[in-house]
Nucleic acid binder design. Structure first.
Lengths: 111, 111
DNA sequence: ACACTTTGCAACCATTGAGTTGCGGATCAT
DNA sequence: ATGATCCGCAACTCAATGGTTGCAAAGTGT
């Protein structure tokens, strides 16, 4: 759960086309660049680049079968990023609770 | 939890400087651009831009007090993004479980 | 063997984004 | 009142990136 891997995950998910792509892979189980390119208004190479980014982020894994390369989902990257967010969220929560308590006690003092 | 807001959150968290900034705000409760700029190797304006991005993403909220503008954390943006990830993660989970079952039954068929 | 499909690599273009400098306006302290 | 901070806005540079086209290599079907 290194900072670089978390960053790569957020970078990968920051692009709307890539999020859509993730959704399509989740629906279908696996996908090739050519398949997706037929349905989206972008070229196959653009899709291939997006799939490469998802792969580098550990969110998708390619498997070559004959002349086609199918990409499936790889959950570990998402799990790591979700863990990071949960952890950071917990820290925020602690901090915010302190602030709320502080504000509440200030209110009490103010009557 | 619109797609645009989720995208803004991921975009905000995809930058390492911004993640560091989030950590600093979490530690201190609140922060000004000038304060942070003294400790980081970037200018105040760069920090101000980052804080603006965090604000637009709903992750930080500014409060002007006199001549300084302090930024504190705003949890809603993070909560939304975390919810998105949890949801997508659950879908992946379902899909992966299906695939595993499929693979297992294939194994059984193969003997 | 040959036509067809699928992929991968490289070069290129346009846009975004992180960072800078410069300046003017508002606030605080003396 | 004036000097010192602090902020916000605007213009600029430079690298990263989403997208394109072109082409060669490898797999498939007849």
């Amino acid at each position: 759960m290194t900072d670089a891997s978390v960053g790569a995950t957020f970078t990968a998910l920051s692009d709307p086309t890539r999020r859509q792509l993730v959704g399509m892979i989740a629906e279908r189980g696996s996908v090739t660049a050519s398949e997706v390119a037929r349905e989206l208004p972008i070229t196959r190479q653009a899709v291939a680049k997006h799939l490469a980014v998802l792969h580098d982020a550990g969110l998708a894994v390619p498997a070559r079968a004959g002349r086609e390369t199918r990409y499936a989902l790889e959950p570990s990257g998402l799990v790591d990023a979700a863990a990071w967010m949960t952890q950071v969220g917990a820290e925020w929560d602690v901090r915010l609770r302190r602030l709320q308590e502080h504000a509440a006690s200030a209110d009490r003092r103010a009557g």
